Amino acid sequence: MAEFWEEAFKNKQEMWGLEPAQSAVLTHDFFVSHGVKNILIPGIGYGRNAKIFKDSGLSVTGIEISQTAIDLAQKHFGKDLTIYHGSVTDMPFDQALYDGIFCYGLIHLLDKDERIKLISDCYKQLAPGGYLVFTTITKEAQTYGQGTLISKDRFALFGGVNLFFYDEATLQEEFGKAGLFEITTVTENYPFYLIKCQKKP
């Protein structure tokens, strides 16, 4: 995966533009209204979803597998943005506890063991009362069922990407122990779930 994303960011640079995703806007408003001060963004990319949080005065830390993406993020948003270089599968990178964690469009790239570990690792880094917000692709996406079936609801697609497609049953199964309290849908490039969890205060 490291080589795939490094090549993607080298070749396509800011491939999704600089405007935040709709999920990031919704999560920003939710975090601000709930008094979140410091957040972790696993899979921060080149930072397009970080800016809206930074502009509101939140402290933002990221994790990113591609050094090219980190360089782009620091070019756009300054060197004061802390980004750990590595895979989210190697979390934790620090011992900090965060008020909020926002993980956009990443978990569906992982296999089941990696997904369970990511949710668990993020939950462990939440401060008591903190919020975990994930977005992931749903089975309503037109790409569901395309490519080569790897395992249940997981397919090898174009260019070497493996995608797992969630439904509400799988969300309950994987996020249920992480304080899951709300599932909504949001349309990005694909239909996404916006998943909210809270750690007990």
Rank of each mutant, 00 (worst) to 15 (best):
S23Y: 00
A24S: 08
V25H: 05
V25R: 12
V25E: 13
D29S: 09
D29C: 04
V32W: 10
H34N: 15
G35N: 13
G35E: 13
V36C: 13
N38T: 08
I41L: 13
I44A: 07
I44Q: 10
I44D: 03
R48Q: 15
R48I: 11
R48W: 09
A50T: 02
A50C: 07
F53S: 02
L58T: 03
S59E: 15
V60Y: 02
T61E: 14
I63F: 07
I65P: 08
S66M: 06
A69I: 04
I70C: 01
L72S: 09
A73T: 05
Q74V: 00
H76W: 04
F77Y: 10
F77G: 00
F77P: 01
D80L: 05
I83A: 00
H85M: 10
H85V: 06
H85E: 15
V88D: 01
P92W: 02
D94W: 01
D94L: 07
D94A: 09
Q95W: 00
L97K: 14
G100D: 03
F102S: 01
C103L: 09
G105L: 04
L109S: 10
L110E: 09
D111W: 12
D111A: 13
D111S: 14
K112Q: 15
D113R: 14
D113P: 03
E114Q: 12
K117I: 06
S120P: 06
Y123W: 15
Y123C: 14
P128H: 08
P128M: 12
P128T: 08
P128Q: 12
G129V: 10
G129K: 10
